[in-house]
């Protein structure tokens, strides 16, 4: 509890780190902040080209099916890959100044979270401009699922940023892990396809469902693509997995952070 209070006292530091990160990210590039929007759009074009032109998936309005899941996925994967680096990247601060170390993963996750929120502006523009439309009632659940995703990402970021300090190899392995994780989460395909494929293997299905990103991505898709109020048991799983991941990250980080200054 006292550590939470201390982090609260350092809220201005979190705020200024987030600001610095957001302002600094595209500094010196011609399109600047627009990259926040262009990047997911370009990815969307590539995936759409592959899955609705070359390898036809047969899913109606595949680009929307993909887009509503891809944006939250990009949040998660950057929390994993760039987040793992956040302690190393600020090692000058860590070695020389005291502040609650949790500030760094929190600031990192928050700035990628803000990026996702900005990308969601594009998502909504696309949904409305194409005439696909949105269900306002279902959209009320969107902030909830975003907050749950935020805590999962924070947990993951804390876990891997702390481990990376002690084991620098993780930096290189993580991009592969992120890719594998993307294929093992229903981003490019639907949950129903997995249920069908794994119907004969209930055990594998259970394992599958313990992937913390699965219920999150499914919920986004239910809200925005199927325009439904999300399935409550799915939301429940998301909350439980979110709490578990976040506590795990918090705990590991707390244990490892005492050695940061010496290890760096």
């Amino acid at each position: 509890m006292s550590s939470l209070k201390e982090i609260y006292n350092y809220r201005q530091m979190i705020f200024s780190l987030v600001k610095k990160e957001l302002r600094g990210r595209y500094k010196g590039s011609v399109l600047g902040f627009l990259w926040t929007f262009i990047n997911p759009l370009l990815q969307l074009i590539v995936y759409t080209l592959v899955f609705s032109v070359i390898m036809r998936s047969g899913i109606e309005k595949y680009y929307l099916f993909l887009f509503v899941a891809l944006v939250p996925w990009i949040f998660f994967s950057s929390a994993l890959t760039s987040g793992a680096n956040c302690i190393l990247a600020s090692q000058d601060l860590v070695k020389k100044i005291y502040f609650p170390r949790e500030v760094l993963p929190i600031a990192n996750t928050t700035s990628t979270f803000v990026n996702m929120l900005l990308s969601f502006v594009v998502v909504f523009v696309v949904l409305i401009v194409t005439g696909f439309g949105v269900n306002p009632v279902a959209c009320l659940f969107l902030p909830i699922i975003m907050i749950i995703e935020y805590f999962i990402c924070l947990g993951i970021c804390m876990l891997f940023s702390a481990l990376t300090v002690y084991l620098r190899d993780l930096q290189s392995i993580l991009s592969i892990i992120a890719m594998a994780w993307q294929f093992l989460t229903p981003v490019m395909y639907g949950q129903d396809m997995v249920e069908e494929a794994l119907s004969a293997h209930p055990f594998l299905m259970t394992v599958w469902n313990y992937n913390p990103t699965t219920p999150i991505i499914n919920a986004y898709r239910e809200i925005l693509y199927y325009k439904q109020i999300p399935d409550m048991s799915n939301m429940g799983t998301a909350v439980i997995l979110g709490v578990v991941v976040c506590l795990l990250g918090w705990f590991v980080f707390g244990k490892l952070q005492k050695g940061f200054a010496e290890e760096l």
């Binding site: 201005q12 200024s16 610095k20 500094k27 000058d92 100044i97």
Partner: peptide, 24 residues
Amino acid sequence: AGFHPDMSGRENIYTNAAIFGLSK
């Protein structure tokens, strides 16, 4: 600590003081 060369002195005061745990 945390001075950013491209930011102004005033902005850096905020960043730097924030690292010492001061609120806005």
